[in-house]
Amino acid sequence: MALLEVKNLGISFGGLRAVDDFNISIEKGCLYGLIGPNGAGKTTVFNMLTGEYLPTDGSILLNGKNLVGKNPAQICQSGIARTFQNIRLFSKMTVLDNVKVALHNEFNYSLASGILHLNKYKKTEKAMDERALEILEVFDMKEQANTLSSNLPYGQQRKLEIARALATNPQLLLLDEPAAGMNPNETAELMDTIRLIRDKFDITILLIEHDMKLVTGICEQLTVLNFGMVLTTGTPDVVLNDPEVITAYLGE
C-alpha cells in the first residue's frame, strides 16, 4: 500500500474549478516532485492535503486513513507536515522556540506543572531543548538557536521552516518551493539536505519546485499539473521529454 493515496481530488472556488480529478500515489520513502506552470493549482493541492482547504470531492488517504474533513492541526498530528511558499515563521520567537513549538504534541505536561514549574516541567523542557538542538544540528543552525527568527538571512529562514516541519515528526513532508529565492550554491546545499532528511529521518517527501536542476537532481517520480489537471506522471527523464509537458511549459 502506498503511503499517500489521493483519488479524484477536486475543488471549486465559486464557479472556478481550480483542481480537477487529481490522482497521486506516493510510495513510502519516495522523493516525489509536483511541477507545473504558475497557476496550475500546485499550492492548492498542498492546501487540500493539509486541511487548509476542504476539497469539493475526492479522497486523501494516508496509510489508508481518510484525512478529508480534518483541520490542519489534526492533519499535522496524523503525520503530514509542510512548509509555505511565502515563509511563515514565528517571527518574534527565537530559532529554538520556533522548533519547540513544533514539538508541542510530542512532549507533554499540564498547564498546572507549567505554571508551577514542577519537576515534570523542568525535565520535559530539557528534553525538548535537546531534541530541538538535535534537529537544528542537521541544518547546521545550532549556533543560531537563540537568534530571533526574523533576523535570520533568507536562505536560513527557509531552512528553519523545514526544520520546524521536521520537528512535528511527520511521515510525509510537503515542501512548497523550497529553493525559491536561493542562489545556485544554496540550492545545491538544499538538495543535499533534502536527501539527508529522507535517508536519516526515513521520511517521504513531496515537493513543489520550479528549479529544474533541483527537480531532476533529486526527484524520483514526477507529476505534472496543468490547468488544475494531471498532465502526466512518471520518472523525470520520461516526463520531461514528454512533448505535452514541453508544450505546457513553453507553449506551441
Partner: peptide, 22 residues
C-alpha cells in the same frame, strides 16, 4: 511553558501554528 509558546505562535502566525499541530 509549552502552553505559552503555543499562545505566542498563534500571535506570530496562526496559519503556521495550525500547520505544526497547535
Amino acid at each position: 511553558s509549552r502552553q505559552g509558546r503555543a499562545v505566542c505562535s498563534i500571535r506570530d502566525n496562526y496559519i503556521a501554528a495550525e500547520a505544526v499541530g497547535i
